[in-house]
Computed example of a mutant assay.
Amino acid sequence: MSSVTPYVMVDDATVFRAFLEQVFEAEVTDVVPLPTDPKRMIHAQAHIGDSSLFFADSGPDGGRCLSSPTEPVHVQLWSQVPDPEGAYERAITAGARPAAPVTVQADGSRMGGFVDPFGTLWWVTAPA
């Protein structure tokens, strides 16, 4: 099964979180603070109804999930696919630029990223 989740980079994730909670009654989970500045977030997930939205603070100082090879990237798409390695290779063949090779993460999932020819940063992942 495949799915796509928007990943929004914002100037102030704390303010964005409050906005989502107020406007959409979102439940925010999986908040990961930036180790060097706990007031900033390198990842968070908002649950709005049956949908999810990932978000984080943007900025070249490491306050984003991972840096993209070109700036700026404001929206990232998180795609769960059965074969992230295959999707990654097909994307590079189709003209995408590598952002991060597919690697096994600490939780056993596999994840990698690329920037498509239109400037969108895609993350492809498969659960453990």
Score class of each variant (00 low, 15 high):
Gly119Cys: 13
Ser58Cys: 05
Gln76Thr: 12
Ser79Lys: 03
Pro84Lys: 09
Glu25Gln: 14
Leu66Asn: 06
Gln80Thr: 11
Ser68Arg: 09
Ala94Gln: 09
Trp123Arg: 06
Val23Asp: 02
Leu20Glu: 10
Leu34Phe: 15
Pro117Tyr: 01
Arg40Met: 12
Gln76Tyr: 08
Phe54Gly: 11
Pro117Gln: 05
Ala18Thr: 15
Val4Cys: 13
Gln76His: 06
Glu71Asp: 14
Val23Trp: 00
Pro84Ser: 02
Val28Ala: 01
Asp83Glu: 14
Arg64Lys: 09
Ile48Gln: 10
Gly112Asn: 04
Pro82Arg: 11
Pro38Trp: 03
His43Glu: 14
Phe118Tyr: 01
Gly112Tyr: 00
Pro84Val: 04
Ala18Cys: 03
Met9Glu: 10
Thr70Ala: 12
Arg17Glu: 06
Gln22Val: 02
Leu20Gly: 03
Ala106Met: 10
Gln22Ala: 13
Arg40His: 10
Ala87Phe: 00
Gln45Arg: 14
Glu27Leu: 12
Val4Leu: 11
Arg40Phe: 02
Ala56Asp: 14
Cys65Tyr: 11
Gln105Ser: 09
Ser79Glu: 12
Thr125Phe: 06
Lys39Phe: 01
Thr103Ile: 10
Ala91Met: 07
His47Leu: 12
Phe114Leu: 07
Ala106Trp: 02
Ala56His: 07
Pro98Thr: 14
Ala46Lys: 03
Val32Trp: 07
Ala99Asn: 07
Leu77Arg: 03
Asp116Trp: 01
Ser109Glu: 01
Val75Thr: 14
Val10Glu: 09
Pro127Val: 09
Thr70Gly: 09
Phe114Thr: 01
Pro38Ser: 09
Leu53Val: 15
Leu34Arg: 06
Val8Pro: 05
Thr125Ile: 08
Leu34Gln: 13
Met9Val: 08
Pro69His: 00
Asp37Gly: 00
Ser68Ile: 02
Arg110Leu: 08
Asp116Gly: 05
Arg110Val: 06
Glu21His: 05
Val102Asp: 02
Leu121Thr: 03
Asp107Val: 07
Asp61Gln: 13
Ser52Tyr: 01
